[in-house]
Nucleic acid binder design. Structure first.
Lengths: 346, 346
DNA sequence: TTGAAAGCGCTACCAC
DNA sequence: GTGGTAGCGCTTTCAA
């Protein structure tokens, strides 16, 4: 493979001159520059970024550590990251920690060894394996979830507000028996959604029965299990807030198996909005998170940290909370009692 | 940041010795090795992979170029790739070409400049931008789609067989008016599915009317558009084979808008099997592709090419075709006429 | 078994 | 403007 040396020789100039041409430094006479360009072309020369990285002590690479690629939510975030990274000349090394904290740590070490300029991370759980990197002043920003006691940079969705709005939507429809299937409560996104739900209920003066609070773990199976429990209750809820797309799928399965129709018997509202949500029967009312935007802003934040640390100033950690959007479709409707109220209730 | 030099100094040994310890060469006295290890620990030393890569002329990194991360099919493949890569000590640089051939080319150049040891690629379309890399003997394997006139390594699903099996499923159910919504026909996966469909029809002595052959482009909108055309036909088909998950969603939308129920009025069968397929109403019959397996085998194939090329032998290009699986659920059923045949048809 | 030294391909500094 | 040269952090001979 041709090196800068070969190019210099063929063009009859020095290494330094070729380097300048490569890097667009314009203190090179056009004539020489042209000769160099011709030589590069002739030799099919492509600058070796590895060598460059070693010299300039920057790899123009960032690491992205997701807890599970299979989740389409992360996929959306990934798109945002990738686009923003590319437009700033960065490449991204991708790692999947498979929801495994040990793997997360190993991956982080790998990224560090490869000298990525910084990393974006969607943490697996309450683990704080990454704290040592924060202390080492390694540019790091968290996405979607914030581990407890973590005080680094992050971009998350307004989970509290989203759950509150969703719950109020139920309340506005006339629902009284409202239930929630939560995500993992050791994760900020899981907890915040529950709190938002609680607040909306409280403000409306509605009680929250213990049986109506089902704790899931964001995965399909738990949505199914919790759904079954809720629906088999002697006085089942008329509305269910489901805190992840996977769990919503599980809940739908439970409803189908029990032949409970939606929204007639129970209204459902899920987190995350994907293509399928608006094309299934009934079309699902959902809370849409700005996935791409989260990825994009996280990348921008990381870039800021990289440059500031590079300049020696270890600036303030930032935190950005992005608004969500409630998309009302057909899976939420007034409860039957309201449509056809018993006389004594009027 | 500590370097190998600092470690050597602190441990009172030479650079070479430290290097040996790092790389597990056992010609180092245990006593010294221990001293070195202690020094590394004390200095929080992490070997610089960039420097190592420059020296050994291998980055232990591969590039993955997908046409669109947002598609859950690629996500599945990605999981397979990542796991296999990691277990072999490889990292993956990820690029999304957004179905844009120019971007695909740019990304390929970036990967090359970064001196990845090889690349896995899900090409965008008929473009052959990558041919120059093949000629350059750069280790490359294609996944899912094979550009026409490409003769490099690849792992794909048995698209022909899958479509054939799916179509026969319709035929076995008693359908006579069977239609297909194809993918992009300039891509091998799009074309092979159409051919498999054709063959099954032919073998059963069934005609294929032009109006029943709708050409889509794998995307949701085209599924919707084609679905509408099909369903508005004076003599609509009783069964539709839909060649991608996105298009199936579009088709479902068309059916909902026209209030055509599935499988009563028309049976549908889609390509790709995701969580939502078996949890919507009705549960979808699908062709499942071995996504993870495709990623895994592609990575293994790439590894073989990397080592063989490294050893100077430019071995034969390989091609692997993986079996698919038909998952019969509730969206396919016998046509109404068969359930309640008119007397003269018996 | 260990150490010294060369060099991977590039950038950047300093003379000219 | 241009060229020579040192050196980024590591591996890998070759001698000792």
């Amino acid at each position: 493979m041709a090196t800068i040396r070969d190019v210099a020789k063929l063009a009859g100039v020095s290494l330094g001159t070729v380097s300048k041409v490569i890097n667009g430094v314009d203190s090179v006479r056009p004539k020489l520059a042209k000769r160099v360009a011709a030589a590069m072309e002739a030799l099919d020369y492509h600058p070796n970024q590895v060598a460059r990285s070693l010299k300039v002590r920057r790899t123009q690479t960032i690491g992205v550590l997701v807890s599970d690629v299979a989740n389409p939510f992360f996929t959306g975030v990934m798109r945002g990251i990738e686009g923003e990274a590319r437009s700033h000349g960065y490449s991204v090394i991708f790692c999947d920690s498979n929801e495994d904290p040990d793997l997360e740590r190993t991956n982080l070490d790998t990224l560090f060894a490869r000298r990525v300029d910084g990393a974006l991370i969607i943490p697996t759980n309450a683990h704080t394996a990454e704290q040592h990197l924060v202390r080492r002043r390694f540019p790091l920003v968290f996405i979607d979830r914030i581990p407890p006691s973590f005080n680094g940079s992050a971009v998350v969705a307004d989970n509290f507000g989203a759950a509150e709005e969703a719950t109020r939507h139920f309340i506005g429809l006339g629902h009284k028996r409202i239930s929630i299937i939560t995500g993992t409560l050791t994760l900020s996104n899981g907890l915040d959604r529950l709190e938002g739900f609680r607040k909306a209920l409280q403000q409306a003066g509605l009680p929250l029965h213990d049986e109506y609070l089902q704790q899931g773990d964001f995965l399909l199976e738990s949505g199914y299990r919790c759904g079954l429990k809720l629906l088999q209750h002697p006085v089942p809820p008329t509305a269910i807030l489901c805190c992840s797309n996977q769990m919503t799928l599980g809940l739908m399965r439970a409803m189908r198996e029990m032949s409970i129709s939606c929204p007639d018997r129970v209204s459902i509202l899920g987190f995350d909005d994907f293509d399928w949500a608006e094309n299934v029967n009934p079309r699902l009312t959902t809370v849409a998170q700005p996935m791409m935007e989260m990825g994009k802003q996280a990348m921008q934040m990381l870039l800021r940290r990289i440059t500031s640390i590079h300049e020696g100033v270890y600036g303030e950690e930032e935190k950005v909370v992005l608004k969500t959007e409630l998309r009302v479709r057909d899976s939420t409707a007034p409860p039957l009692e309201v449509l056809d109220p018993a006389p004594h209730e009027v």
